[in-house]
Nucleic acid binder design. Structure first.
Lengths: 257, 257
DNA sequence: CGTTCTTTTGATGATGCTCAACTGGGGTGG
DNA sequence: CCACCCCAGTTGAGCATCATCAAAAGAACG
């Protein structure tokens, strides 16, 4: 157990938000509203969604947002920051099941049983929007585009996991790691950040765990890629000189060794 | 490429179903209605669902139900039989992403882009119910329990895939295979079949592919488990003398080697 | 600055893959 | 009916990849 995780209490000490906050916190004012749940909604519908969204919570680094076995009441939209989700095996070690960033939804795996199936922890100081699921459900009938996009987000999660299955089942270590970086790159691009230069928000160990590899393997791959000029690496800062080439490595079609 | 897959034409030559067929095909008459999409619906709501469901199609063994890139119009509920879903990697080899049996839903990964992301093929002569997704969506507003259960089924798919990620990322070969058998066992149990004695519907190669192993490894594990009296095996017939023990092997807590 | 945690690097080894040969069952056709 | 073939599965030997163990180096934090 590397570091003790604190647990964010379900009820924070925040006062009911001032109207200024309420304005600042609105979906329409959020930079993520074109990626997040309200995607494609008109002004009026977005306001209705706003109305049911609970607190905007700050989640400090290394704080659990929810844990396995918690009863499911909220989905969480990431407003700012990064999270990881992980399960604990019988052996007691963890398996990272995903890294989530702003605009992405946490907790969808809990709908099936009303119990959370994984733990979610902030990788840095972050902010989430609480979305009470039963209230969200009550909106679905009235706002078909909202329902439609919600389904797309769930489906996307299924697709994402399928591609991880493919990665874990079929790819060699270097391909996995390259694919991981390419994936991060495209997600940052979608958020308006540089696709070729970014900070890793997670440690080597977490990356390795996610990819079914050890920390040593990740470290070696990083060194190897650096030597091959596929990457420039400085601690957690990554620069990708040739994204197309990295994609080829991920695909296994790279001529270079 | 082991065997040439035929592709089932989108429009079959079937005449419009006779009223007798219509009756026989109703969800309420289907043995799977307590597991499938109509789970928990009342008589009236189930009839409304019935009304939008398209053809009940027979899918012969080794026939593709849909393939990567097909436009998404229907979900498919498996009425009878077994399917596998798989993707094709750049290298040209396949990755099996799941085995589906009666009462389970196929195609949910296609909602996100309106394009199918995997191929689905029948492992034996099977039957599916076509569920036109836009018509299903039109019912969601009117039948909240239907929507609710649909969400549960999607969420369950996410959970299922997470457990595969855990399996592929963390478990050794013997644990994977044991977990696979335990999973099949519980799904057969849920359908009223024996949890300790069943036929594998898929070949060794497909199992190995699903579990990130080779056919040889599966074969060796089968022999090893047989030797340890964990299993009785005869071709594709499996018998599990001690399910609890097999679960321990899957968990890695087994004392026996 | 010292302590602690993370990362890097090296040496060794095990798990599961590859390649190859063999077995056995089921269907086909002479 | 039997011989044959073909495919799926089994078994063995050697090997590659990646894990494990160990130790040192580098960041981060007070």
């Amino acid at each position: 157990m590397p570091k003790p995780l604190s647990f964010h209490p379900p009820e924070t000490a925040h006062l009911p938000p001032l109207s200024l906050d309420a304005l600042r916190n609105r979906c329409s004012a959020c930079s993520m509203h074109e990626l997040c749940l309200p995607m494609g909604l008109g002004e009026a519908d977005m306001d209705r969604l706003d109305a049911i969204i609970g607190r905007r919570r700050k989640i400090p680094k290394d704080t659990l947002l929810y844990r396995v076995g918690d009863t499911f009441t909220n989905l969480y939209a990431i407003r700012l920051g990064h999270f990881k989700t992980f399960q604990i095996t019988q052996g007691g070690d963890q398996q990272v099941t995903g890294f989530q960033m702003s605009g992405e939804l946490l907790g969808m795996d809990a709908i099936s049983t009303d119990l959370h199936h994984c733990n979610a922890v902030a990788l840095e100081d972050s902010e989430v929007c609480e979305i009470p699921f039963t209230r969200l459900e009550s909106l679905f009938g009235d706002i078909p585009p909202l329902l439609r996009h919600f389904h797309r987000m769930m489906s996307q999660e299924i697709t994402r996991e399928q591609s991880i299955m493919l990665l874990l089942g079929n790819m060699r270590a270097d391909q996995r790691f390259a694919a991981f970086l390419v994936n991060l790159s495209s997600r940052y691009a979608a958020r308006g950040y540089s696709p070729t230069s970014f900070q890793l928000r997670m440690g080597r160990e977490e990356i390795g765990n996610y990819l079914g590899l050890t920390i040593e393997s990740i470290s070696r791959l990083l060194s190897k890629f650096k030597k091959q000029r596929l990457l420039k690496v400085s601690n957690r800062a990554i620069e990708i000189p040739d994204l197309a080439l990295l994609k080829e490595v991920a695909a296994g079609t790279c001529t270079c060794d």
